[in-house]
C-alpha cells in the first residue's frame, strides 16, 4: 500500500508538472500561483485512489475523486472558498492536454484496427456520436427553457 502511494504520488506529480507548464504557456498563469491548486487536485486524486483500495465496495476511483472534489468545494463546507480560489488557478484545458498526449501515444496501438474499419462503420459511428450529442442538447434546451433557466 505504501509503495503504491509512493508510485501514485510520483506519477501524479509528473502530471502536475506537465499541467503547470501548459497552464503557464497558454493561459499565462505563473506556476508559483498555481502550485497550491495543483497540490489540492493531486491530494483529491490520491485520496480517491487510497479510499478505492481500502473500501470493500467496488466503485470506480473516478466516483470517489468526483465526490471528494464536490464535497470539499461545496458552499456549505468551511474553508471551501480557499479550495475554490486555489484550484481556479488551474485551467481545465491545461489538465486535458497531457492526458490526451499520453492517450494519442497509446491510441497508436489501436490504429491498425481503426484502419480496418470500413467506410460504413465510420459513417454510422459518426451519426452515433452526433445523435447522442444533438438528442441530449435538444432535450436539455427544452427543459431549461421551460424552467426559465436560459
Amino acid at each position: 500500500m505504501l509503495k503504491n502511494i509512493q508510485e501514485w504520488i510520483l506519477l501524479l506529480s509528473i502530471f502536475g508538472i506537465l499541467i503547470l507548464l501548459g497552464n503557464w504557456l497558454n493561459y499565462e498563469i505563473v506556476p508559483l500561483s498555481a502550485i497550491p491548486g495543483m497540490i489540492v487536485l493531486i491530494g483529491i486524486a490520491l485520496l480517491g485512489l487510497v479510499i478505492q483500495k481500502m473500501l470493500p465496495i467496488n466503485l470506480p476511483t473516478v466516483a470517489y475523486v468526483a465526490i471528494i472534489g464536490i464535497l470539499i468545494s461545496m458552499p456549505w463546507m468551511p474553508g471551501s472558498e480557499r479550495i475554490v480560489e486555489w484550484t481556479s488557478q488551474i485551467e481545465l484545458l491545461a489538465t486535458t492536454t497531457p492526458i490526451l498526449a499520453y492517450a494519442g501515444i497509446s491510441i497508436g496501438r489501436s490504429w491498425a484496427d481503426f484502419a480496418k474499419l470500413g467506410w460504413r462503420t465510420i459513417i454510422v459511428a459518426s451519426f452515433v456520436l452526433l445523435g447522442t450529442f444533438l438528442g441530449s442538447a435538444l432535450i436539455a434546451e427544452i427543459i431549461l427553457r421551460v424552467q426559465g433557466i436560459i
Partner: peptide
C-alpha cells in the same frame, strides 16, 4: 512506451475529474 501510456491516462483523468469536482461543488 505506448503500452506504458495507457494506464497513465487513468491517473491523468483523476486530476481532470478532481478539477471538475471543485468546479461542480460551488
Amino acid at each position: 512506451q505506448a503500452k506504458h501510456a495507457e494506464p497513465l491516462i487513468v491517473l491523468g483523468v483523476l486530476l481532470l475529474i478532481a478539477k471538475i469536482g471543485v468546479v461542480i461543488g460551488p
